[in-house]
Amino acid sequence: MAVDYPKRFGWVGLGAMGFPMATQLLQNSSANLWIFDVDQRVLNRFASDAPDGRVRIATNAKQVADESECILTIVPAGKHVKEVYLSPEVGLLAGNTSGKVFIDCSTIDIETSKTVGDAVKMSDPQNSVAFFDCPVSGGTAGAEKGIITFMCGIAAEDEKFPLIHAILKTMGKSILPMGGRGLGLAAKLSNNYLSGIIALATSEAMNLGMKLGIDPKILSDCLDKGSAANWVNSTVNPVPGVCPDAVTSKGYEGGFKVQLMEKDMKLAAEAAHNAGAKLVLGETAIGAYVSAASDPRYRDKDSRVVYKWLVDPRD
């Protein structure tokens, strides 16, 4: 199905994921891009690296909305999403929203996303504006390569999905329609809950095998061939040196910060409570990430630094 692809995009949030995602959007489309972030330095860096004439720096989120046909947002938490969209005079919804598409890729609680989505719809009396929750998975390395997964709060048969698919395909490999509003976030919270537990379990298993005398690379290769095979072990093993190109072998610098994993695990637990879904492992795993994120040795490091929290001597 042919889609009316936007010629002018807006982007709010150029953090660890947003920066490479927006870069991919520029590289894989001919559209122009209006950008905004609270950090002026990152705005200047992005604009200086961009093709001539295709990127403009906005003074606030409102200008991004005014100047764009499709606006993507990716910020750390629900309170930031509210600020970006709902701030009087300078937020996205203070601008012209008529006929526009808003795609929020942030990982936040479902209730906040629905509140913001309602406000987006109410901002346009003609009811021609659209809002979708489309959080992402695949890490900064995946974002830099354009191979991340988008979990989209939209049904496959929705008339807007071909457009959403075409836009997100410039930045990712898998564009998954999860069935409807809020279900993109439902999938992402489920994903990160499992990912966080797998990383912790992989750390424990690696530590166990190493304590018993197995070389860590040999152990990782063994796990990869058995019933314990998982993406964390094979791609970003928590033990430094096992995956030489991963952030875990580079001082845990970059990647998905441990405090963000703490946030997402708590959001998943809250969602489970609200839905009446029983969690057995959640409390213990959350406790591990809370402890690691509160330790200055590990805070701001990639979340797989939970391995170091596990094996390093406590103060």
Rank of each mutant, 00 (worst) to 15 (best):
D4R: 08
L14H: 07
G15K: 09
A22V: 06
S29R: 04
W34H: 08
I35E: 12
F36D: 06
L43G: 02
R45G: 01
S48D: 13
D52V: 14
K62M: 13
C70A: 15
I71G: 02
L72M: 13
T73P: 05
V75P: 11
K82D: 14
S87N: 14
S87V: 10
L92H: 05
N96W: 02
K100A: 00
C105P: 06
S106C: 07
D109R: 01
V116M: 10
V120Q: 05
N127I: 10
A130V: 15
F131E: 01
F131P: 03
D133E: 13
A143E: 14
I148W: 01
F150D: 10
I154W: 12
A156V: 11
E157L: 03
K160S: 01
S174L: 12
I175F: 04
G179H: 08
A186V: 02
L194A: 14
G196H: 03
L200Y: 07
M210Y: 01
P216H: 03
S227P: 00
V236L: 09
V239S: 07
G241F: 03
S249C: 08
K250C: 01
G251R: 10
E270L: 12
E270C: 12
A277I: 15
K278A: 12
T284L: 09
A288R: 15
S291K: 14
A293M: 11
R297Q: 04
R299I: 08
S303E: 15
K308M: 13
P313Y: 01
